[in-house]
Nucleic acid binder design. Structure first.
Lengths: 193, 193
DNA sequence: GTACCGCTAGACAGACCTGTCTTTCTTTGT
DNA sequence: ACAAAGAAAGACAGGTCTGTCTAGCGGTAC
């Protein structure tokens, strides 16, 4: 009643990805060694290096994973479920942020963290720029649905509020999401057709 | 015609601080080794460790230095000189940012960078939280002078725009400062008595 | 003139990090 | 039954990092 090799492989890969997610999201890239990922995922070193030829590859996989879990699975899905109109769903992003900021072990935005840690020239930093653009894509889509003018420009300003509030939360401002939501409301008014 | 020992000491200390400033501001803390600071400052290793008993001490000194040069010497001074009223001087912050974002070797905000890199529990991260609060202090002071309501609350929202625009600039948005300034104008209207 | 103090130069220890390799075991496919 | 393939456990090499230490040099103070 043991697992098949295929299951073994995906199980091992999954454990690595889970461990990398927890460690990288919480403590950053450089502060976490491969040995720590191995210890937490209970995987052999050779297994990790079979699935991910280098630490950079693992980091890129982590960022993809982060986009699935956090961007789409958490922020996008959760805020969509909290509003009925596109405008409500946009503003609900900051309600989701509010809860997120107050949760245990708030880890800020991995895309910002990694971009600043590795720099925009590093492959991981470049990937972060793309993942951040995808977040703006969600915002721009809703802006379009809401009939706002210049959805992409709107999304860039909106994103400033999202990122600024995240940094403020990392500093310890417990009301950062509320403040950003206020400014976000004004921004919507500004961009009404 | 050689320098006195006192001059020697301050000269060495100054060279260390200058090198640390360039390197840490541009590439972060963990990515820069002590040996690199030594090489660039042309100082002996023992001299560096005499002035700064550990790398952490050097980092704290760098952050203090950054506050003097960047917060006060650049942002505060430059934006003050660009406006005649407190309100103009507030908005001029984003004009200064615009130029800063477009300068060669834009390095983002060291306080944000180091806070995210080291975490809020590390001494350096904690120092960043204080230095960031000092930036808000400048904003709150001008808000008070401008007769705006709740200057501290105002400054917290304003700071979200500053930090958000910096991250956007780090991503490559060349108009980040303009967008933030627009929202900042609306924020001032919101806080008029 | 002599004792002192800070600087230079660089070797060194001890820790850590990435990535490779070996060995043994288990499961699958034929 | 037996080859292939993947995983576990961990030793190992080569590099990097922080921080200490030794040795010598030049200027200062008394």
């Amino acid at each position: 009643m043991t697992v098949s090799p295929a299951d073994d492989a995906t199980a091992a890969r999954g454990r690595i990805l889970d461990a990398a997610y927890d460690l990288f999201a919480q403590r950053g890239i450089r502060a976490v060694g491969i040995d720590e990922v191995i210890a937490q995922s209970k995987v052999a070193k050779a297994t990790l290096y079979r699935h991910f030829p280098s630490k950079d590859d693992l980091v890129l996989a982590f960022l993809k994973n982060r986009e699935q879990r956090w961007t789409f699975g958490f922020v996008e899905a959760e805020s969509r479920s909290r509003g009925t109109t596109p405008e409500e769903q946009l503003l609900a992003i900051f309600d989701v942020f509010h809860d997120w900021f107050h949760g245990a072990g708030f880890e800020a935005c991995s895309f910002i963290n990694v971009l600043l840690e590795m720099g925009p020239d590093h492959p991981a930093g470049a990937a972060c720029v793309k993942h951040l653009a995808n977040i703006r894509g969600v915002v721009a889509g809703r802006a379009r649905d809401a009939g706002l003018r210049e959805p992409d420009e709107f999304a860039r300003s909106w994103h400033i509020l999202m990122k600024g509030s995240i940094i403020s939360a990392a500093e310890g401002d417990t009301k950062a999401a509320r403040r950003a939501k206020e400014m976000a409301s004004a921004l919507i008014e500004q961009y009404r057709a």
